[in-house]
Amino acid sequence: MDLPLKNKLFISTRPAGRSDEMKNLFESAGAELLEMPLIKIEPLSISAEEKMLVKNIEMFDWLILTSANGVHYFFETYNNITDKQKLPGHLKIAVIGNKTQQKLEEYGYSPDFVNPGNTAEDFSEAFLKHLQKEKQHPDILLALGKLARTVIQDALTDIANCTRIDFYTTVIPEKVDPNILKRIEEDRYEMLIFTSPSGIKNFLKISGTQQPEKLRVACIGEITARTAIENKIEPFVVAEKATANGLADAIINYYN
């Protein structure tokens, strides 16, 4: 049996409970994956004005959901503040990536537009072309996280009326396993795995490392890799596909 990552130890920094798929992929390749969550997802309270927009969601033509977290916290808010059983039938839903689509389907909805890529830039380019075939200046609700960039609304500003509501945010967890931090300090690991810019920033705050350039890291996409480079960390691996499978494949290819 081919085990390309045999006896190698990796450290995932994904939020608690989000590393199961990655753990299975790495273990099937012979590696050990430790979990050191550096991001905690929390819901945000929205303003009275934003609650009115959610209650009157029928005024929108499109709902854009960019992550599984966005899906979860949008519906959690929607179900809490309205007595409506379903979204209005005319409302179309656009999502980024298969994970977001799968989460949406758990709530009983199928997207009308699924972005072929996994970044806001990919989405904006493809969705812009899609909208140009439809009515002029549709009203769009973007359900995002507080730290999400403004790429989508900036790209659509000339052809749509975009309203952004932040439904969740990411924070540093209260506790981080000191044994794993010690392992990193003593260089007893293969690579640190980062799946978001926040993970990198939080690690640097928590660890207080004075030599970030010596870290061995793998990043799930170009945006995360860019944040690493900005902080003097040169990624060993950058996955082209921003998924657990894409990251595992990229790391295996690196060792091959």
Results as ranks from 00 to 15, higher is better:
residue 159 I to H: 00
residue 179 N to M: 12
residue 197 P to I: 06
residue 179 N to Q: 12
residue 140 I to M: 09
residue 195 T to E: 03
residue 183 R to C: 06
residue 129 K to E: 13
residue 153 Q to G: 04
residue 174 E to P: 00
residue 211 Q to Y: 09
residue 172 I to T: 14
residue 183 R to G: 00
residue 162 C to W: 04
residue 196 S to N: 08
residue 184 I to S: 02
residue 154 D to P: 01
residue 130 H to L: 02
residue 137 H to W: 09
residue 156 L to K: 03
residue 216 R to C: 10
residue 189 Y to I: 08
residue 191 M to D: 03
residue 142 L to I: 12
residue 136 Q to F: 11
residue 124 S to G: 07
residue 127 F to V: 05
residue 150 T to D: 15
residue 197 P to Y: 01
residue 139 D to C: 07
residue 193 I to G: 03
residue 130 H to T: 02
residue 134 E to G: 01
residue 135 K to V: 07
residue 153 Q to V: 01
residue 162 C to S: 13
residue 186 E to I: 04
residue 140 I to W: 09
residue 157 T to A: 11
residue 141 L to A: 05
residue 159 I to W: 01
residue 198 S to H: 08
residue 128 L to T: 12
residue 211 Q to E: 14
residue 179 N to T: 11
residue 191 M to E: 08
residue 180 I to H: 03
residue 171 V to F: 00
residue 216 R to H: 15
residue 197 P to E: 04
residue 182 K to N: 10
residue 142 L to P: 09
residue 139 D to E: 14
residue 124 S to R: 05
residue 200 I to L: 13
residue 165 I to F: 09
residue 139 D to I: 01
residue 164 R to Q: 13
residue 185 E to L: 09
residue 192 L to K: 05
residue 160 A to T: 03
residue 136 Q to Y: 10
residue 200 I to K: 04
residue 204 L to G: 04
residue 153 Q to E: 15
residue 164 R to N: 08
residue 179 N to I: 10
residue 195 T to W: 01
residue 195 T to A: 15
residue 190 E to Q: 14
residue 198 S to L: 05
residue 180 I to W: 03
residue 169 T to D: 15
residue 213 E to A: 14
residue 189 Y to C: 04
residue 196 S to T: 07
residue 203 F to E: 05
residue 216 R to N: 15
residue 159 I to S: 06
residue 160 A to Y: 04
residue 124 S to K: 03
residue 144 L to N: 05
residue 147 L to I: 11
residue 176 V to Q: 13
residue 199 G to K: 08
residue 191 M to L: 14
residue 171 V to S: 10
